[in-house]
């Protein structure tokens, strides 16, 4: 995988923790069980790592070009508010994660991942810890993000969602790619017997 003119998976770069951290930022990850930071508000959850990163970059600049920390913070807060509006949680900005429902927590987690503007956003079964109602809510948010210029890779068991939203579907069983193609190819004309039996069961 090539990012910024460099291969992100070359062994030499993978031994350097600094390089690993840099490469990681090409990716965003949304977890199955959210993993929000419980001691921070929604807004702080979104801005924490971006703020740390901005401060570090700021410090590396020569002194006259440095910006005030308050200015950085204001800018990031504004950016976070825009993302919260996109996932529909503007009114929860100063709530703590424990005060939110599972679906809301997952939407915050999605916004948090988007904060660092990753090239590829990965979802690790984003709805398997949620009930059907909340699943719909989170799926709606993911669907609405599709128009943006971030590539999204979603691991999911929600077949309808995959069929309706995905551009490309990969079916895996026991760690092996069984079949891949457009949703029509995979869902309507499955070739492998495992996929055929899987689809007829759902």
């Amino acid at each position: 995988m090539i990012f910024g003119g460099e291969d992100a998976a070359v062994a030499a770069t993978l031994r350097n923790p600094k390089q690993i951290r840099k490469n990681r930022l090409y990716f965003g990850l949304v977890f199955q069980s959210f993993h929000l930071f419980p001691q921070y508000t929604v807004l702080q959850n979104l801005t924490l790592s971006a703020y740390l990163k901005a401060c570090k970059e700021n410090k590396a600049l020569p002194k006259p070009e440095r910006r005030a920390k308050a200015e950085i913070r204001r800018e990031l807060d504004q950016q976070a508010m825009e993302l919260l509006a996109r996932v529909g949680l503007t009114e929860k900005v100063s709530s703590y994660p424990c005060e939110l429902s599972g679906g809301q927590q997952q939407r915050v987690a999605i916004a948090r991942a988007l904060m660092l503007t990753p090239n590829i956003l990965c979802f690790d079964e984003p709805t398997s810890a949620l009930d059907p109602e909340l699943t719909k809510e989170v799926m709606g948010v993911i669907r609405s993000l599709k128009s943006s210029d971030t590539t999204m890779i979603v691991v999911t068991h929600e077949m309808d969602f995959a069929r309706n939203v995905a551009d490309k579907v990969i079916f895996m069983a026991h760690g092996i790619i069984e079949e891949e193609g457009t949703p029509e190819e995979v869902f309507d004309h499955p070739k492998s017997p495992i996929l055929q039996s899987f689809i007829s069961n759902t």
């Binding site: 990681r24 930022l25 977890f31 993993h35 924490l48 660092l116």
Partner: peptide
């Protein structure tokens, strides 16, 4: 998961 979340957010 807390460590993993920190990792993917690029924290040291």
């Amino acid at each position: 998961g807390q460590y993993e979340a920190c990792d993917v957010l690029g924290m040291t």
